[in-house]
Nucleic acid binder design. Sequence first.
DNA 1: ATGACCCAG
DNA 2: GGTTCTGGGTCAT
Length: 651
Amino acid sequence: MISTAAAAVAARPRIQTRNDNRIVLHFDYDCFYASVFERENPSLKALPLLTPPPKAVQQKQIVVTCNYEARRRGLRKLQLISEAKKLVPDVVIVLGEELGRFRDASKALYKFLEAFTWSGKVEKLGFDEVWMDVTDLIDYNQAILNTNDLEHSFFQLKRNDPTVGFSYDATKIAGHSFPDNPQQGIPSRSCTVTPPLGREDNDTVTLMTRLILGSHLAHHLRLNLEDDQGYTSTVGISTNKLLSKLVGNLNKPKGQTTLLPPYVILEDASCLSSSDEARRQSHVSLFLDGHDIGKIPGIGFKMSQRIRNHVLSRPADFDDRSMYEGTNESITVGHVATFPGMGPELLEKILGVPGAERGIGGRAWNLINGIDDTEVQQAKNVPSQISIEDSYGRLETMSEVVKELRTLTTSLIRRMHRDLLEDDDEPDSAGGKRWTAHPKTLRLSTRPRLPLNADGTRTRSFNRISRSGPLPNFVFNLKEDINAIVEKLVQVALIPMFRRLHSQPSGWSLSLLNVAVTNMVETASDDGRAGGRRDIGRMFKRQEEVLKEWKVEDRDVPPDHPAGSEAVVPSHAIPLPPTLGNEIQHHCVPTALAGSEDMIQPTQTSTDGNASWESDDEDDGAGNRAMCAVCNAVMPAFAMAAHERFHDLDK
DNA sequence: ATGACCCAG
DNA sequence: GGTTCTGGGTCAT
């Protein structure tokens, strides 16, 4: 008969082979919102070492974040302002509903860090966190180490340039580590039996060296962020996104923590007496096992609830996870990992409900064991969606809704201009700007207050409902007045979407509106791009390409589709069919209108003949030249209809 | 493609 | 998860 502990060891499923060849840094800017305000208004900044003022950032009736002094005095994120004032009467409250300043600061810091990478692997999470995959810098600097004089090493920040970088002591970790009392340079071992020098030990020593290099790079970057950008930060250093993010939490603010090897559970199990001890062989498990299961990034409320219910064999007493922490209801990673029969298969049974991510059991099991193979994403130029929302006490009439839709849409268009336009040196481009990306979809979301229940109570629901559809092309026109674009978008797209969401003219009450553009498609930025050239030869070459692609695609157009046949003309001698000459007048009619019964029909917009968003090139002597509102390409007016359809092909 | 849902700060 | 105001993603359809 074997003990249950031994059974747990024997029954524990194989852990996926670790891949610890990367070095990943996780940055978290300290009190980001508060820091942005302090940089704007240095008088807000604490007098050094004197009691700093407690500061909180307010959105609506809620504290969205606060500085460490406020936290020390009991303030928490997402606390009501009224409670916060009661708790800390002298708290300095600043309004933080306008996010532009935070977005700008976040982008600047992100770009600053990106410049240090060789691979371009820099990934943002929210405004105040960034991962960097610095594996290539570490590989390079590991290779050039002088093992005879590690104390006086030089970290090269540029390949093949030995002058750019910093001096460091490669025998010591920079900053804190976990565990925090290591024998420097020599991995600690909790097993008293010394195994023969095997592969694990080589890996451990190598990994130690690489993590030491990573810790010094992190330290250098933190100093640079503070000196050059004015932001202090906290960093975690490990081999993947999961571990780097979690280990950074150990020393906040203005600190850094490196998760030390060994990361593997050593093969030598001769000294093991329990599964717990087996897990502690690895510093990864030693570190993770104390975490509440819901604290693992990727295991959110729903999943942690399911896991907790299974381990407790009953629903947890409360629906508030924060109530569990530090109580006997708390379920830790260690509890889950050593639960009898626990493994990817059981987790798949627990978590694999319809709608759940496929392979979620294996993924969750990996996370519990500190395994996270997800890559640090390449730096992105453009977001994949932009959304603007506001919350309200109650929104009950159409006129209120339309008013708010106008406000939100105005912000959205401004955001699109700010984030999706770049300077264009082409002399002909509209306003010297060009679009770097085109969202294809427009979405309207609302959060309705539920109707009263039979017993007179009201079930609170925070679920959102949404409708979406093609984003009309006229929003990309840079010559038309923003207010006109907004009004058109509200009338032809958003109000119809709203009616699809709420078919009754009244009776609803909304607590939130969100307008979003999604489905972003990046515009090619190489010089072969379409856009704004007066070079006639080039223009016609481009036109040939358009028509050629058109002809290929055209074979799939059903015979009753009239658009195709008229556009297919010999590219060397393009005639001007009478019908096309007319089409140029409404080339910017939103394509969304075409297929939606809910939207007003194109005739309405096509009759406002000389609207400013149309080509205004008539006066330049070239005559009949037009610029595409989507890509700024200039071409003969008669070609525009085909060109517009070209854009429509990728919708 | 669309809409619901989950996760993150 | 929700309260804010976002942003990233997956699944079923």
